[in-house]
Nucleic acid binder design. Structure first.
Lengths: 224, 224
DNA sequence: TATTTGAATTCTGAATTCAAAGTACTATGA
DNA sequence: TCATAGTACTTTGAATTCAGAATTCAAATA
């Protein structure tokens, strides 16, 4: 049985393209986006652009700039904190459920440990190699893995929304500020708690991890 | 200075119309939706319909039915549980933050108590009057109020996604099964904890409240 | 010189049209 | 009678066109 090769479609492509540009800073906050311009740049009509823009606006990454089209929303501290508060809950939930899955033999702790350690190794390597892009990528990979093994498919979906926003901030900070030294130690602790099938501990560590990330980023942004 | 009366636009209108029809069961699970039909029914072109459908699909309320258009996704128990797990975290977070707001004098406990009791009174009235629509409405109103006073605007946004799904189930169950006797007692307990500025207790009660609702609905659905 | 009013430009939302892809049905052959 | 291939239809995705709304710039008057 061969897998269907579903091609993304121009609207999805446009969405991804714009999302990337916003996240990596190519489109600075405050920059205005005009449908016709974007259509010309990406070589498509305005229709798929309109759909992509609507999704981005729904995500909170764009806001109306009446008469000028849309503009990339500025990242203010209070909103960032709100995103982190929610991620703290969501990641806590995911870690707790993941540990429960291990506890109930829903999945083998050996494979979890192996998969987890692989991602952690890659993450540590990215830091020592000073590759910003890879750092973010592996950070996402680790947390996505927790979401995946939690057994609750909706956590991934819900968290996506916040990751889209936070990727921007992370990119900004990682480029300038000092590297986060201990996040992979924290990741490892979370993984250990999951492998040890300790839901309460896993939840607590995951929540704490996100809160620490939040305060760290807040400080980095305030000093800049 | 008069407020601008921003008209929703046909796409938004179509979205709301379809959403309502799905939630109140007019569009049964499994029913197929064809763009052209809907356009004719609502008296608009296919363009705004397409956008509304895209959002609905993104919400998980619709899924692809290749060759037949889209169909209303069936509500399975495991997905419902996933929604409730997330809402449990989100509502717990909101209650904790709300209590913290009161604790830090961010908002007056008198007004909170007053507003809360008003909603609770309306909710109890809806139950004694046996008005299903009002029951759901007041339930949403109570939780939305907690989201609002939590100080985190994103909780409302995130929770919307799950409410959209759960409204369907709640409507189904409330129409048939016995009325939930104690949910407004639970709501009152949550409100009391918030007014008493006890974050931990508020969080715990809110989480417990959602979990109870989940098990209750699960039982109601399994027996039917 | 400042303020107000008008027009022109520009952008978006919506409608219509076009093309491509997938499905179902039918007919034919084994 | 069943399977397979071909054709026609249905449905969506994308492009183009049209109309409405808001802003900005300029000119005229106080």
């Amino acid at each position: 049985m061969k897998q269907i090769s579903v091609q993304p479609g121009r609207a999805e492509l446009a969405y991804q393209a714009l999302l990337d540009e916003i996240c990596d800073g190519s489109l600075a906050p405050g920059a205005t986006l005009v449908q016709e311009e974007l259509a010309a740049q990406l070589g498509v009509s305005r229709q798929p652009i309109q759909q992509a823009l609507a999704r981005l606006k729904g995500d909170g990454l764009l806001e109306d700039a009446p008469g000028r089209g849309l503009c990339v929303s500025r990242l203010d501290l209070s909103r960032m904190r709100s995103h982190y508060e929610i991620r703290s809950s969501l990641d806590g939930l995911a870690a707790r459920l993941a540990a429960s899955q291990v506890l109930q033999q829903g999945l083998s702790r050996a494979t979890v440990e192996q998969d987890g350690r692989t991602i952690i190794a890659k993450g540590r390597r990215a830091i020592s190699n000073d590759e910003v892009k890879a750092m973010i990528q592996q950070d996402i990979a680790f947390h996505s893995y927790i979401y995946e093994i939690s057994g609750n498919a909706l956590i991934e979906t819900s968290a996506q929304l916040h990751w889209r926003f936070l990727r921007r901030v992370m990119g900004d900070v990682l480029r300038k500020a000092q590297r986060p030294p201990s996040i992979w130690d924290q990741h490892e602790a979370i993984l250990n708690a999951i492998v040890a099938a300790d839901p309460e501990l896993a939840e607590h560590l995951a929540e704490q991890h996100i809160e620490l990330a939040c305060t760290r980023l807040t400080q980095a942004l305030e000093t800049s």
